[in-house]
Design a protein around this nucleic acid. Structure first.
Lengths: 378, 378
DNA sequence: CTGAAAGCGCTTACAG
DNA sequence: CTGAAAGCGCTTACAG
């Protein structure tokens, strides 16, 4: 391995001169610079960031923890994130908890040992809030609350709920099925526990539907990591719907008051993630239902599945670029604002600390994109 | 930052004793070990891998370069790869060339400076072979040839071509459209140039179709990074097919000899990646075509799109886990087999070198999974 | 089995 | 503007 020493020898200058050239700091005479640069080129010198980082106490790397890249949502998120971090000269160290045997705690331990500058946490965690604060490095959470002092970035799921409710109400929907993650996610485990902001989408939607007198129910699937599990769940759902529907006119239009067995209107809208929506389109076709006439389908996320399902999906799109930008900005701020500053200036520092402790929450707007799986609104 | 020194002081032992305990190397008395471990716990000591790595000349990190994670194929690949590498205690440093402004050369430069133990290259590159060998670190290529001395892992695309040809022949297909990347990928730019093994799928398929007297044509899309581009291309394709078909009976069964304008049988099979296949199902529906009766559709890759398209796709599945396993094994081998060994043992070493220089190519089998987009074979 | 010493490759004050 | 010196935190021979 050719080091600075070799360059210095070859160029006939001292070590620190080479360092100055490499770092473009301080003033070096043209002649010296030229000789050093030529020596570096001839020797194919590569500065060793390890050594530099050791001295600086920084690595320029951010650990990104997600459940799995196999789900298009996290793939899209990480894609946007990696690009954003790269803009800040930060590298992305990828950790997916469901793709490896390696558990979250082990990943965090590795990230700490490798002196990551920060951690972006986008996976589920059972750790209590104080675990995340005790790590001693900047942590920013995506779409979940990890504690009072940890910044969170998330989409405006409430807005998503309102947008979808509006669409469903205006299009005369009468019975909605929401398909989502395990019901346990809805438990409010009180302060300190992890909470899932995502459920607020369903909650808000549910409230709005209630207000409009639209019947709705919730069907729980397995964890987000199991894409095939969603496919199975949606398949079972349609088999069930199909049975109850067979009482009325099969495939009859929802407008034609095809009321089911016990006076319950047949399900005429399915709501869930992109994956759920894509599977729902497929199952609807398989059961001879017309989308959107018999059943409307609305996805959530805005991944590539929007264009790959049997019909262009109507979806609530999360703004991945904006989310990534906020996430990156938060982590960069935290990295540049060393937590361990010894309050050199009483008042000011205190104020700053309090501001940081206010557990900032960035809420990014979502938008409804109308595809071919919903009916036109009058 | 609490370091070994602090631990040593607190435990009342010397620095090297702490080191021995941390590394579980050498023998330390029970009492010493106990005291050191307690001190580590009380101080929440985290070994600094940076310092350790600086000494060892290793980082335990592998750079993984892909075009984009937005394409399910690469997302699935990286997912599998990250899990495999983690098993080997290797971390994954993610670099996606299309998701960031950062170019491939810049990424490689960063990877070198950060002393990556190795690089897994799965993106397109315009660099000549000697660029990749000159990096001075182990490089393993996925699905492309980067030069004579760089190991490659890829799927058996020829087998894929044969499997699909067999399916198409047996099901009485008469006119196949293959949708793939830019035609330039087919150019054989001779030794030293990057080649795309993927095209061998289409080539093999084409040869087999020729042999069976089945008409086929190739439609080129944009680069793999542009998922929406595929959607558009498939859309245009179906519009075109629809026009030519309108001469015969619209939506007529291919069995019914609906011969097109110039005696050309109408297209009754679309072949391409998962993304292409998913889009094709959607377009077929939109154009009132019955899949698989009027047109068969066969995907390639085996990503989550298989279950998310309008019908369960018939696809050739690449074995992502096996690919990841081979990729990881190759890189681990290369890392453990330092390239710079000074041929201490003439003959043996020479033989070893030659073996390594033989540019190993691991070819991983693929498999055809029959879904609902192809006709049953007699 | 334990302690002082040199070194991994670089950076930053600090005197010339 | 340039050179010798100490140090980032750890590891590995090397004497005790």
């Amino acid at each position: 391995m050719v080091g600075m020493r070799d360059v210095a020898k070859k160029a006939g200058v001292s070590l620190s001169t080479v360092s100055l050239v490499v770092n473009a700091s301080g003033y070096v005479s043209q002649e010296m610079r030229r000789r050093v640069e030529q020596a570096m080129r001839e020797l194919d010198y590569i500065p060793n960031e390890l050594a530099r980082n050791l001295y600086r106490g920084r690595t320029g790397m951010i650990g990104v923890i997600v459940p799995t890249l196999r789900h298009p949502f996290f793939a899209t998120l990480v894609s946007a994130l990696q690009g954003r971090l790269a803009k800040h000269e930060l590298q992305t160290l990828l950790c997916s908890t469901a793709d490896a045997d390696t558990g979250e705690a082990e990943y965090v331990s590795r990230l700490r040992r490798h002196m990551m500058d920060g951690i972006i946490m986008a996976a589920h965690t059972d750790h209590p809030a104080n675990y995340w604060t005790s790590i001693g490095r900047p942590v920013v959470a995506f779409d979940r609350v990890l504690g009072d002092t940890i910044a969170t970035v998330r989409s405006d799921h409430e807005q998503g709920g309102r947008l979808v409710a509006e669409q469903l109400v205006k299009s005369g929907t009468r019975h909605v099925v929401m398909v989502g993650g395990p019901r346990s996610q809805f438990d409010d485990r009180g302060e300190g526990a992890t909470t899932f902001p995502t459920v607020r989408y369903f909650q808000t939607l549910g409230e709005r539907l209630d207000a409009a007198g639209i019947r709705h129910e919730y069907v729980a699937c397995g964890p987000v990591t199991d894409v095939e599990g969603y496919a199975r769940a949606v398949h079972l759902l349609f088999d069930r719907l199909s049975e109850s529907r067979s009482g009325g006119s099969a495939g009859g239009s929802a407008h034609d008051s095809g009321v089911g067995d016990a006076g319950i209107p047949p399900v005429d809208a399915i709501v869930g993630s992109d994956v759920v929506a894509a599977c729902a389109v497929k199952e609807a076709f398989a059961h001879g239902l017309n989308v959107p006439r018999d059943v409307q389908i609305i996805g959530y996320d805005g991944t590539c599945l929007v264009d790959c399902a049997g019909l262009t999906l109507t979806v609530v799109k999360q703004n991945f670029d904006a989310i990534a930008e906020r996430l990156a900005a938060r982590i960069v701020d935290a990295v540049n604002e060393p937590e361990g500053r010894e309050s050199k200036d009483g008042e000011d520092s205190k104020a700053g600390k309090e501001f940081k402790n206010a557990a900032a929450v960035d809420i990014v707007p979502v938008s409804l994109h109308v595809g071919d799986t919903t009916r036109q609104m009058a």
